[in-house]
Amino acid sequence: MKLGLQLGYWGAQPPTNHAQLVSAAEAADFDILFTAEAWGSDAYTPLAWWGSATQRMRLGTSVVQLSARTPTACAMAALTLDHLSGGRHVLGLGVSGPQVVEGWYGQKFPKPLARTREYIDIIRQVWAREAPVTSPGPHYPLPLTGEGTSGLGKALKPIVHPLRADIPIMLGAEGPKNVAMCAEICDGWLPIFYSPRLAPMYNEWLDEGFARPGARRSREDFEICATAQVVVTDDRSSVLEMIKPHLALYMGGMGAEDTNFHADVYRRMGYSDVVDEVTALFRSDRKDDAAKVIPDELVDDAAIVGDLDYVRKQIVEWEAAGVTTMVVGARTVEQIQELSTLV
């Protein structure tokens, strides 16, 4: 089991202590640093800015959204950071949801699995630099031809020779088909709201992908980097209450009312009635009430909150379930130092 630091995306204002957190994580032998994006701060700029002060930690995105960049633009950003970091970059991708993709990026959302597969194929062509990059589409045709184009598009190879032709790609996936595809074509999985209780279900989806012809990895060399709330405390009930508004946002406010992949994760855990109530309250602008209806056991399913002995035992359970890296958030240097003693 390894540790990763999740810086996430920014709130209303830039954070003031992330440089200190990154330095502490590097000193505490954390394996990887992750940044994220939603519809505010991007993932790559903070990763390069704070990652420049590191020497050892891998630098990952968890996740960058497909619709924010064309496949070639994403490949350019990745190969650039991989060079600057001396081969420490990990590209974490995710499709996001229709609310963000069509509402923020102005892109079409349908066929997310086919788009992901095509997107990754193009990225790997760029990094391999074996021939000019082409794609028949239909989602990202290269070169672009047809009505409304100049007809002058040319297949190109990247000017820069990538440091690595095979930068690791991880996928933020939540549904059975997406998780299976992740196991088939990627190097790792970035689950959000992972629950060891559902490990048999997750492993069934992963095994389907591993068994497909041409699968890149096997169970033995595939990473599962699970983001989780891990808090060492003697006041367990207070911390659970602090987490609930965050969960209410993801269950009730992320995605459309009837298309919310985060909510679907909790439905699979057996909390459909809670999800329905949280969604109704959150979308009626009763966000505080939405958080209050979330039971402690729901928080417990995908978080580790308790005293030192309890947290250590839970981490062993997560490792036994297949998780290779616990990706944790931290607000202080002291929290990072405390978490580093757990694995």
Rank of each mutant, 00 (worst) to 15 (best):
D121V: 07
L81Y: 04
L247Y: 09
P112N: 12
A321D: 02
L339C: 05
E204F: 07
W50K: 04
A256E: 15
G322E: 07
A321V: 10
E26Y: 05
L190I: 12
T227W: 15
A36R: 03
Y44F: 15
A165V: 07
A320T: 11
E26S: 00
Y194R: 10
I192T: 15
G103H: 09
P46V: 09
A248S: 05
L81V: 02
P196E: 03
T80V: 09
Q337G: 07
A321M: 07
D29R: 14
Q65R: 10
H139I: 10
A291F: 01
D264W: 08
A173I: 08
T70Q: 08
L206H: 01
L81Q: 04
P98N: 14
E204C: 08
W189Q: 13
S340F: 00
G8A: 04
Q99S: 11
R219W: 13
P295S: 07
V328Q: 05
K287N: 02
M181Q: 13
G87Y: 11
G322P: 04
V293P: 03
V343L: 14
E277G: 03
F109N: 12
A291I: 04
A199L: 08
R197V: 15
A291M: 00
L152K: 15
Q337L: 13
A303L: 03
V90N: 13
L281T: 00
E118D: 11
A211D: 10
G252R: 00
F193E: 10
V343C: 13
N178E: 14
A291K: 06
M1S: 14
M242W: 09
M242H: 14
Q20C: 00
G146I: 08
V101P: 07
G103D: 12
F34D: 01
A12P: 10
E147Y: 12
L163P: 04
A320D: 12
K108W: 08
G92F: 03
T61N: 02
V230C: 03
P138V: 12
K2S: 13
A28V: 01
Q125G: 09
L7Y: 07
P46L: 02
S218R: 09
A19N: 01
F109P: 09
S67W: 10
V323E: 08
G86S: 04
D82Y: 06
T70D: 00
S135T: 11
